[in-house]
Design a protein around this nucleic acid. Sequence first.
DNA 1: CTAGCGTCA
DNA 2: TACTTGACGCTAG
Length: 775
Amino acid sequence: MVHTNTASECPKEMIALKMAQTEKLLPGNQNSVSMDSSSVDMKQLSTHAGSKGRTQHRQTSKPSKRENICSIGSSSSDAPTAVKKRVVPTFHRKASGLKEKTKNKPEKLSQMSIEQVMGTTHRVSGALVQAAKTVTSMSPSELAKLQEIISESSEMLMMLTYTDGSTQLREPNEPRKRASASLHEEGVANSVLVAIQRKAAKKEYMFVSFPLAGLGKENASEATRNVLLEILQSSTRKVCFDAQELMHAIIINYSLDPQSGCNKWVIMDPKIACWLLDPDNPPVTFSGMLKTFVTGKYNDQAPNNHLTHLELLGLVMGDLTNKLQRKNLWELFINLEVPLIPILAGMEVQGIQVNQKMLISYSNILKDEIKDVEKQCYKEAGHPFQITSHIQLRQVLFVELKLDEQCPGQKLARTNVQNLKSTSETVLHKLIDLHPLPELVLTHRQLVKLKSTYLDGLSDYVSGGYIHTSWDQTSAASGRLQSSNPNIQNIPKQPLQLHKDANGSVVNETTASSTTPATTLWMREPFYSHDGWSFFAADFQSIELRILAHLSQDAVLLKVFNDAGSTDIFVQLTCEWLGLNLDDVKTADRERTKRIVYSVIYGVGAERLAETLNDTKENAKAFTKSFLVKFKGVNTFAQRCISECQRHGHVKTIFHRHRLISNISSQNFHVRSHAERQAVNFVIQGSAADICKLAMIHIMKVLSEKNTVRARLLVQIHDELLFEVHDEDINEVKGILKTVMESTPTLGESICQLKVPLPVSLSYGKTWGHLKQMV
DNA sequence: CTAGCGTCA
DNA sequence: TACTTGACGCTAG
């Protein structure tokens, strides 16, 4: 506990707390405990700011107890939750310093604010001893007093500390050696520190600590947990830099249900606020974020301790709050992004069950296939070479076999930077009739990609039968969520068909006759639900196209989407273009149509469109023209976005999410065109992201209120939510998901009343490999 | 065309 | 040896 004035002003209870022994709280971090041993100034805090190349990963704990963690609704559950390998964004490789300099930085804090910061911290540091009181060592009466203080508090500033002495607000002094070497030693969440600002005296703090690391059953007493929950559930304004990480650590260490109670936790996160203000340059670390606010102001002699950092956190959040309000982003922040934080933390802890044996057996199948293809490649090339090496492949294809000289009239693509002859998929496709090698290489690539990324790569992340992916809220400029370690949003949907031809060698689908025996592998097959539960997917149908219809008010698009009972637009267009019957449209064809439509909308060039259409450049041009004539509103909408961007320097989504696009007025045609496409795309993709997030929040709210329904959210793939639902509750959940998600546009008050319906399609099954469509 | 992440050389 | 970069390919729209 710390108070900023004289001891005489303190209530008796607080004095008692102050006297308590606290050394064990901050192991290996004496500097931050008291002033006399701390000569570290703010400069040090800031040196970590844009330090790049910090690729180390940090884990929150921990082995031990995993029962009870994931019970949903009812108390019983058959789903264990595995240990979470959480890669914390704070230490991520994204080099903030590199990225930041290309864009405008937010305005500096006013001079006033800086004086306030420095003045305040100095005064705080002048207090006798600054150390937090450990909650587990408090007596019942002290706890009661603490609860009273919480209920009367005006603000609570929170952060995680780690066992190496670093915190969420101060990165470690020594760069870590290696992530794998330090996995169990360093970077484990150690405690939650909370500075509770008392209403009575503005600059008086109750400074308490909740242990996390090595939390035994006896320490995690009911009382301690309840106080922490009281803090999290209180209506007092709370602030934390990277609140998702904080919640994640709390859910795990206190064995909380990851998806019901915590959905109500509200913590302001300056990291997210900064990202909303400039989504292309999200802050990575707290000190990095400070740099964008108060550049060059760290020369002052300022103390470097936990409470100082927390005070700074509060001040920065206050400043960001004003900025968000001025930019009309506060509603987005408080109604969309902040409520999403506990949902993401819950998804991380929840994890998804994976059959590792299946991953390994698939991998072995592919290993043999790859060997076969390799042998054939060597035969066709006349000698062995490294097929995965573009340099060696270039040598074989263009120097030894001279295939490029055999395709007259065709301009073969070059690589972007070095302008070398490309060995990309489209180029190899053009060479397919000239020689057997290109197709073999394509097959080889496909197999190697699937094996290394989606089988072996995923297998590395399986822990206790689960994969716990990281969800990142602030890394996509469009407002979309991002998953990583592993990325669970790009696991192939289409199955891989393996055939054996007459020679017994492997070929892929395109060349094999349909009568040859086939092995079919779905990369999503190894993801499976628990006994008695099923996966349940709900996705918005063609959401971006519908948003385009709404925003552009294109008459044809509006009609297509408002005609009751009309079939899927991509199926319709596929029929139209290929002259098929509705029932004859294959999913792969529909997928192709979808790609083409979005490409054209977002301004694909004739050359590249010709490649996807497998047609001439002229025909591609004609196609684009006829498409844009059919949907006249698309072009006028695009021009509107571009001129809005030129006027304001940014574009906005329907929920006011904005993106600064400075190149919109570039003199360089190429650069400017790129910026124009970004502007148009952001408005639509960002608006879709807004609606998907709103749907996610709404559905989780409804599900947690209906505590009889057993359903948990596992994955979000942009327009799709993947749940795991108890078999007995499937019908009920089906109804809830459909009505709640489809009513999403009515929630955003009047701002997202769409001129088109937003239908949701549902599917379910025991594995993610092939889900059955529901009527 | 846009938005991402992971793998390999 | 460790780390970065470019090329490629998978997802979503």
